[in-house]
Simulated assay, not measured.
Amino acid sequence: MAHAFALDQRLAADSTPVIELPLCSVRLSADRTYPWLILVPRRAECVELIDLDPGDRALLIEEIVMASRVLKELTDAEKLNVAALGNSVPQLHVHVIARFSDDPAWPGPIWGKGPALPWDSLEHADFTARLERALADG
């Protein structure tokens, strides 16, 4: 019996929904230190890229490119970090992170670099709305 897709509770707790693309749920990290999107393919029991069928893998790449372009345009990021690590959360998900030479972790990775800074509710709502509009427009 096939299992239904369910978002890992850690991803749900650490991010908020932005938009549903054809394959992925796009979420915004709860840490405003780094503008950071998380794309989660809505496929049950996917842990690795190799768990997706070839069509879904191709679609995932296109959705990563779109999310990357949107995040770069909205933030004027100097660099984008794109990664599918999944060591703490095994559910397949891809991080798209806007980086700046003056961010607290530059030039290293962002993982474990201090406590997450929560979003101001108005700033969060505005940024989420701008992300949603830009991603909906493709």
Results as ranks from 00 to 15, higher is better:
residue 59 L to G: 00
residue 117 L to H: 02
residue 52 L to I: 00
residue 124 H to A: 11
residue 47 V to I: 11
residue 99 R to S: 07
residue 20 E to C: 00
residue 17 P to N: 04
residue 50 I to Q: 04
residue 61 I to N: 09
residue 61 I to D: 14
residue 95 H to P: 01
residue 30 A to Y: 09
residue 93 H to C: 07
residue 58 A to N: 04
residue 62 E to I: 00
residue 82 V to R: 03
residue 83 A to D: 07
residue 20 E to W: 00
residue 81 N to S: 11
residue 97 I to S: 01
residue 123 E to A: 13
residue 114 G to A: 12
residue 28 L to S: 09
residue 7 L to T: 09
residue 66 M to C: 15
residue 13 A to F: 11
residue 59 L to K: 04
residue 113 K to M: 08
residue 124 H to V: 06
residue 12 A to C: 08
residue 83 A to Y: 04
residue 51 D to Y: 05
residue 38 I to N: 01
residue 41 P to R: 03
residue 37 L to S: 06
residue 106 W to K: 05
residue 77 A to H: 10
residue 24 C to W: 09
residue 135 L to G: 02
residue 70 V to P: 02
residue 45 E to A: 12
residue 95 H to E: 12
residue 77 A to Q: 03
residue 74 L to I: 02
residue 48 E to N: 08
residue 96 V to W: 10
residue 18 V to H: 06
residue 38 I to T: 13
residue 67 A to R: 05
residue 37 L to D: 07
residue 131 L to S: 01
residue 114 G to H: 10
residue 94 V to W: 01
residue 72 K to Y: 12
residue 18 V to R: 02
residue 112 G to E: 08
residue 131 L to P: 01
residue 42 R to Y: 09
residue 56 D to G: 00
residue 129 A to Y: 05
residue 123 E to Y: 00
residue 96 V to K: 13
residue 14 D to E: 15
residue 3 H to L: 06
residue 130 R to I: 09
residue 82 V to M: 04
residue 43 R to Y: 04
residue 127 F to Y: 08
residue 45 E to T: 10
residue 73 E to D: 12
residue 29 S to E: 03
residue 133 R to M: 09
residue 17 P to V: 09
residue 39 L to A: 05
residue 123 E to K: 07
residue 134 A to F: 00
residue 65 V to W: 13
residue 28 L to M: 10
residue 86 G to H: 07
residue 103 D to E: 10
residue 118 P to R: 14
residue 126 D to Q: 10
residue 25 S to K: 04
residue 137 D to N: 14
residue 4 A to H: 06
residue 94 V to Q: 07
residue 76 D to F: 03
residue 36 W to L: 03
residue 40 V to T: 13
residue 80 L to M: 15
residue 102 D to C: 03
residue 23 L to N: 08
residue 57 R to N: 03
residue 89 V to S: 00
residue 107 P to S: 12
residue 130 R to E: 14
residue 49 L to S: 08
residue 95 H to V: 05
residue 109 P to L: 06
residue 44 A to C: 03
residue 29 S to T: 08
residue 15 S to Q: 04
residue 75 T to Q: 06
residue 113 K to T: 11
residue 4 A to D: 11
residue 121 S to D: 15
residue 85 L to E: 09
residue 11 L to Q: 13
residue 124 H to N: 05
residue 23 L to D: 09
residue 30 A to F: 09
residue 118 P to A: 15
residue 74 L to M: 02
residue 60 L to D: 11
residue 118 P to V: 15
residue 98 A to N: 10
residue 15 S to I: 10
residue 84 A to L: 02
